[in-house]
Nucleic acid binder design. Structure first.
Lengths: 218, 218
DNA sequence: CCCCGCATCAACCGATCGGCCGACAGGGGC
DNA sequence: GCCCCTGTCGGCCGATCGGTTGATGCGGGG
């Protein structure tokens, strides 16, 4: 194993990868794709966020390829946060959606890069090699969104406003929301007005619609 | 090619497959998975619904593996409808979501089976072989949902009610909905009442929430 | 220290919503 | 022929919503 036939090409240490995706088909796809790259080695697979956190700690891969939607258990953002908190393992998010909320939450959780599953395989390989060295890579559509957000900073909802929005999405009236959050109806209305402003709507139905589309709620 | 070395095992005609998914990673995964099965041959790949319809007509595969979410262009349901309309090619839906609306629409469009991407590879192989012979296979969670729906028949929204719901999801008021659909406000209110009943809610925000979660709208 | 963002509350008012009653026409199934 | 579903419409009324203005307290950053 240590002796190579071509001394002119010393085997570079391969990039060690941990896959995390709840879909077997996707994991198989990544395994197949990455198998064609000699300098990339998949050292583990996880089907849930908890599993990924545990395996990342045990295997200490160079890069974790992380999906954000993981079905049961903790989601990809939380898994990313826990893995990135260790400081030694880079997390490269590989997911389907490119909404502002997902991107923002993933980056805030410590992701090194953000790729879309529709990306070309070559881009994926390049992003993995970059991520192994701590360099950031963003898919083109993701980069576009990030830039757009920088140019016209969309107002971010405060924690309390998200609380209100969550109750609103249950279809509750102002009185019920007030009771649920232990505040007065007047306060609920104040928050709602600000939510309308920030989301660019003027009705509760519109707010719920935008919230669901932008994936602002868990 | 025609002469085989083992006359005792006459090569059975392999099942010819066309893949349709907008994610390169997923297509690669399926390709890799199916490559391990000698009796399954992938004869084509499509990254969009339109492409799938065209390739299905040209290649006449035994089975089309169809995702329902296809990004741009026609969706998987419409592609399924057009391919199944020919009557010669079986469509096996392979997707992420198992909501009632998706399942119902796919079956109604003529799908031969409905699998989830989280399914084990062996189930996928078996389903493909079944689909090639026109036999139906459903993922366990899908079958459960179908049975549940049979037992407690959820009221289905009528076309007009879906129209109303679509406008409602834009956050429009009754007057605007009425104008958009060329009917009176009274009619809008009547439809809304029935929608509330069927969805089990009593506010517009709740209706929008359920609609988005159940994927009742395109 | 002062300002600003955030969260909290109050009172008011017109517009809208939701529920209720009833009505009629067309189509499909029994 | 009758009934049920669907789609259409009207009126009524109390409850709710959305917008407005103004106010308080608290915390952090300059």
């Amino acid at each position: 194993m240590t002796g190579e036939a071509t001394p002119s090409a010393p085997a570079p240490a391969p990039v060690r990868i941990l896959l995390c995706d709840d879909h077997v088909v996707v994991r198989a796809g990544l395994l197949a794709l990455l198998g064609s790259e000699p300098d990339i080695e998949v050292v583990g697979e996880a089907g849930s966020g908890e599993e990924a956190v545990a395996l990342a700690a045990r295997l200490t891969p160079d890069v974790v390829l992380m999906d954000l939607q993981l079905g049961e258990g903790i989601d990809g953002v939380e898994a990313t946060r826990r893995i990135a908190a260790g400081g030694t393992v880079h997390v490269l998010v590989l997911t389907t959606y490119d909404t502002d909320a997902d991107i923002t939450r993933a980056i805030e959780a410590g992701a090194t890069g953000y790729l879309l599953k529709a990306e070309r395989p070559e881009e994926l390989f390049a992003a993995i090699r970059s991520a192994a060295q701590g360099r950031t890579t963003l898919s083109a559509p993701v980069a576009t969104r990030v830039m757009a957000r920088m140019r016209s900073p969309r107002p971010t909802l405060t924690d309390r406003e998200r609380d209100i929005l969550a109750q609103l999405s249950q279809g509750l009236g102002n009185r019920d929301i007030a009771r649920a959050l232990f505040i007065s109806e007047a306060t609920v209305k104040t928050h709602l007005g600000r939510i309308y402003d920030k989301l660019g709507v003027d009705t509760r139905a519109g707010a719920v619609s935008v919230a669901k589309e932008q994936r602002l709620l868990p």
